[in-house]
Simulated scan of single mutants.
Amino acid sequence: MPASSRGARLALTLGLVLAIPAGAPAFAQLPPPSAGQPAAAAAEPPAVTLNLTQRGVPAEASAENGVLAKERALAAGRRAAWAKLLAEAGTSGPSLSDQQIDDMVSSIVIEEERPSPTRYSGRITVNFNAGRVRGALGGRVPGLAPVAAASGAPAPGVPASNWVEAVATYRSMAEWLDLVRRLKGAGQVASVDVQAIAVDAARIRLGLRGPTDTVIGDLAGLGIALVPAVGPRPGESWRVGLAGGG
């Protein structure tokens, strides 16, 4: 290459370098991707809100007697409420037995009922326990918060640190069974020991995971009244029953 040509190229290069302002970045920034290009990372799924209170759930069943028909109808109602919750959450959920579904239920409210000697028909409201439902659905529903973020209640495996002797009162065996189920499903209750039982009352020992004053408020949210006994006899410092019950 002639010397004059090399000199012209060198002068042009020096001119371009000197034309860059001091402090300018060494590399030019790339333009943003066009609308047709995929995003660098997929957007996070929207958070899922679980409807833990299912109302107007049908409960129907037949059996050889009215008591068994009601038990079967309530079991069918709990399963129908669970299926409705799953549908609203957009998942098929795990395959659970009637007992596993029952363990996730905090309470049942009977809206209407039509019992007969061999058949039970009605509509119920089913209230599910938030922590247990989240535990069953963990990893199946995108955007579902983990169990630890759902509640500050102690984990089910935490042992009792406080024990209360109480007399449970109820108007029927069905009400007694409902009370025991709610107590066992409460996050602050570690154990329910039945010491004696009659047709309308039972002496029980509750193992609690926290101070009694704190547990009282948590149980109230599940429809359970735990109150000091009035004029208590030995072993009757507390009374417990369904809120509004006898």
Rank of each mutant, 00 (worst) to 15 (best):
G217S: 05
I124L: 15
R9Y: 04
L68I: 12
L222Y: 09
G217N: 04
V105Y: 06
G139K: 15
G139S: 13
S161W: 10
N162D: 05
V17C: 12
K84E: 11
L18A: 09
A61F: 07
G241Y: 15
D98R: 11
V133W: 13
A43I: 12
A145I: 07
A130Q: 11
P58Y: 10
R171G: 08
S116A: 14
A150Y: 15
P94N: 05
R239E: 06
L85V: 01
R55G: 00
G231H: 02
S4D: 12
S92G: 12
A229N: 06
A8P: 01
L16E: 00
A69E: 04
V199W: 12
P234Q: 01
T13Q: 11
I124M: 11
I216Y: 00
V109M: 03
A35V: 06
A130K: 13
L10K: 08
W82V: 00
G143W: 12
G246L: 10
I197V: 13
G15H: 15
R6K: 09
S237I: 06
E236H: 07
A201F: 09
L52Q: 11
L12K: 09
V227E: 08
R182W: 09
V194Y: 07
L179A: 01
P117I: 14
A150K: 06
Q99I: 04
A69H: 04
E113G: 04
P211N: 08
R134S: 02
L144D: 01
G56K: 13
P154Y: 03
A229M: 05
R6V: 01
G93H: 08
R79H: 14
A243W: 10
A63S: 15
L74Y: 15
G157P: 04
A81N: 04
A220I: 02
V180S: 09
G56Y: 09
T212M: 05
P232W: 00
P38L: 13
D218Y: 08
L177H: 05
I124S: 02
D98K: 02
L242P: 06
P146C: 00
R209W: 11
E175W: 13
A150L: 05
P32F: 12
T125P: 02
L144T: 06
W238T: 00
V48L: 07
A24Y: 07
G135M: 05
D102P: 08
T212I: 15
A186L: 07
G135W: 15
G152T: 13
N162E: 13
P25C: 01
A155P: 14
P234G: 01
Q195S: 03
G36L: 11
M173Q: 13
K70E: 09
P33M: 03
A225Q: 14
R182G: 01
R114Q: 11
R72I: 02
W238Y: 03
A136W: 11
V126T: 05
L68D: 09
G56A: 05
